[in-house]
């Protein structure tokens, strides 16, 4: 089966954002695209250019204005797939449902296989996210 979904990124939850950036940028030679407060949960996020994918480094805070991430254990938290073809995303959604995974509808044509559900396959709670991409 030819997959038109491409892995475009991963998200890591980290304890120490300075050290994580140092590893990827200063040691591995990746580019730092941005570092700013996180919009989804309270904390800070850095985006790393890792060539064919981007790496999001999320350092969640324990307090602050907005949603506090309950499970802050450092881990691989997301694997993100993308395509510019909506039908490919739709077909992946349908396959996930038929397979009996727990799938959550997100806005704008995105969906994710929940970490709890993926845990039944991977042994660790990782969200499998599918997002639409703008065609080049």
């Amino acid at each position: 089966m030819e997959s038109a979904l491409n892995a475009v990124g991963i998200e890591l939850i980290v304890d120490d954002l300075d050290r994580a950036i140092e590893l990827f940028v200063d040691v591995m030679g990746c580019g730092l695209l941005s570092r700013e407060p996180s919009t989804m949960v309270v904390g800070e996020v850095a985006i790393i250019d890792a060539g064919t994918i981007v790496i999001s480094l999320l350092a969640p805070s324990t307090s602050g204005e907005g949603a506090v991430l309950a499970e802050r254990t450092p881990r691989l938290s997301q694997i993100i797939f993308g395509t510019s073809d909506d039908s490919v995303t739709g077909a992946a959604f349908d396959r996930a449902v038929v397979a009996g995974l727990a799938v959550s509808n997100l806005a704008d044509g995105r969906f994710h296989v929940t970490p709890e559900s993926a845990s039944g396959a991977l042994g660790q709670p990782v969200a499998i996210v599918a997002v639409p991409l703008v065609a080049p």
Partner: peptide, 15 residues
């Protein structure tokens, strides 16, 4: 967790 959370429309037959 259910097969589809927050569905666009309710699922009649649910895997």
């Amino acid at each position: 967790q259910p097969v589809v959370a927050r569905p666009d429309r309710p699922m009649v037959i649910v895997p």
